[in-house]
């Protein structure tokens, strides 16, 4: 008789899958964690951890260029995500829970276009387009960046809103109409409150997407219009400066916070945007 105890047979077990998965998570997080750890390093080097310090965070925060870029990032993200969310909500109302109609596929394609076209191509297109407008009007303010950001934020705002609307019982709005609510009142009192979590989630995603953008901003921005990401890219030499490291870690923290909020808002739905 053998003393060896065999493990009970598990249906879902596949040899090697669990170790690969765990290695994968380690590989995913090791660089990020290293980055965060070294952002608290007092020294210049990323090779040598000298002492715990938040000096680089202060250095970054006191840098006027960083302040301006951060403020610019926030302004653009706020406007762009706001515009994108309002327009995406309207578009979701016009495209969900209705029989097909002529042109709906075109609307879908247009809305999801930023997800399909390589960003660098859109960036080039906007560069050409805005360059001629800049020449024609002489205006070179933030509006170009806000317009460009709002446009590529639309699908990210649209998807969670649409998902939420499709999950909503159509009978509720019919019931409201039956109870003397005009279409506008039905929207205000029934549709909007029930879709609100989806709208909040969409706005949040749009905000994060705008905040993160590098390529389109890099191409569209006029001189002195750096956002935080383009500023960081511009600072890159052979290595990442400890200051940029600190900014990166701070942005990472913002992402984690927003993402946690998103998870809580949308319940068990994963924010698989694409």
């Amino acid at each position: 008789m053998s003393n060896k105890r065999t493990k009970p047979f598990s249906i879902k077990y596949l040899p090697g899958f669990t170790p690969v998965a765990l290695v994968c998570f380690v590989l995913l997080y090791a660089p990020i964690v290293t980055m965060v750890v070294y952002s608290f390093n007092s020294g210049q080097s990323v090779a040598l951890f000298e002492d715990f310090s938040v000096a680089w965070y202060f250095a970054a925060a006191e840098n006027e260029l960083v302040q301006e870029a951060a403020l610019r990032s926030l302004i653009i993200a706020a406007f762009a995500s706001g515009i994108a969310t309002v327009l995406a909500t309207m578009a979701a109302l016009g495209t969900t829970r209705t029989k097909n109609y002529p042109g709906r596929t075109l609307i879908y394609l247009m809305i999801n276009q930023p997800l399909m076209v390589p960003e660098v191509v859109t960036a080039v297109a906007l560069l050409i387009f805005f360059a001629s407008i800049k020449v024609a009007t002489g205006y070179s303010g933030l509006a170009y960046l806000i317009l460009a950001h709002a446009a590529f934020c639309v699908p990210f705002a649209y998807l969670p809103i649409r998902a939420r609307m499709e999950g909503m019982d159509r009978a509720l709005e019919i019931a409201a109409a039956d109870l003397y609510a005009t279409p506008w009142k039905t929207f205000r009192r029934v549709t909007l409150p029930l879709v609100a979590p989806g709208i909040a989630a969409g706005a949040m995603l749009a905000f994060v997407i705008s905040l993160d953008d590098v390529i389109i901003t890099e191409f569209v921005k006029s001189a002195g219009q750096d956002t935080l990401p383009t500023y960081m890219l511009g600072q890159l030499r052979r290595a990442v400066t400890p200051e940029v490291n600190a900014i990166s870690s701070a942005l990472l923290a913002v992402t984690v916070i927003l993402l946690t909020a998103f998870f809580l808002l949308s319940g068990r739905n994963s924010p698989v945007g694409k």
């Binding site: 515009i83 327009l87 995406a88 309207m90 578009a91 016009g94 609307i107 276009q113 639309v154 649209y158």
Partner: peptide, 9 residues
């Protein structure tokens, strides 16, 4: 309803 988003895009 879809028009403003279409114009923006």
């Amino acid at each position: 309803l879809s028009m403003p988003a279409m114009i923006l895009l």
